[in-house]
């Protein structure tokens, strides 16, 4: 299990290749990447992500352990950034591996659903001169119920 909370950017290709190279006997690798949207008619967006050092790492570890107990997985990687991010920068990624694809797909979705609402990150979005905290959506909380 490889869990990283960092301010620095990461290279999706390099991380995915390195993750794949570490797997033994796994037939499936699933990755998901969250990106800062480049929204609304040419207005460039930026994002600031705050987190709770200490609790963040524990929460991510707990979510990853839960996924490991529910699906047959080879490995899990989670990278989540904080600080200031520009439009189209990568915010976070998860990678899962399994012998067969269903486990890796479902575990990646589970990780994303819980990471959105149970890991202590808060996004503030800026567009033009205005900046505001992103409100949590009811759908995100509802998404947890399917697991």
């Amino acid at each position: 299990m490889d869990i990283r909370v960092q301010e620095d950017p990461f290279d999706l290709g390099v991380e995915t290749s390195a993750f794949a190279a570490r797997q033994k006997g796994m037939g499936a690798i699933v990755t998901f990447t969250g990106v800062v949207r480049d929204l609304d008619e040419g207005v460039l967006h930026a994002m600031e992500i705050e987190h709770y050092p200490g609790m963040t790492e524990k929460a991510l570890q707990k979510i990853a352990e839960e996924a490991t107990s529910r699906w047959k997985l080879g490995d899990i990687m989670i990278i989540h950034r904080h600080g200031i991010l520009k439009a189209q920068e990568m915010i976070m990624m998860v990678a899962t591996s399994s012998r067969h694809r269903v486990d890796a797909f479902q575990a990646a979705e589970f990780l994303m659903d819980f990471l959105k609402s149970r890991a202590p990150f808060w996004k503030k979005e800026a567009s033009g001169t205005a900046a505001d905290w992103v409100a949590a959506r009811d759908e995100d909380e509802d998404a947890l119920k399917r697991w």
């Binding site: 959105k116 808060w122 409100a135």
Partner: peptide, 26 residues
């Protein structure tokens, strides 16, 4: 103490309490 809790929770022995809005990670 860095675990999600609720408003009725006892604080007996707690070292750290944090308040925040619903989380928006991912």
């Amino acid at each position: 103490d860095q675990e999600l809790s609720d408003f009725d929770a006892p604080l007996d022995g707690a070292r750290e309490v944090a308040f925040f809005p619903p989380m928006t990670g991912g």
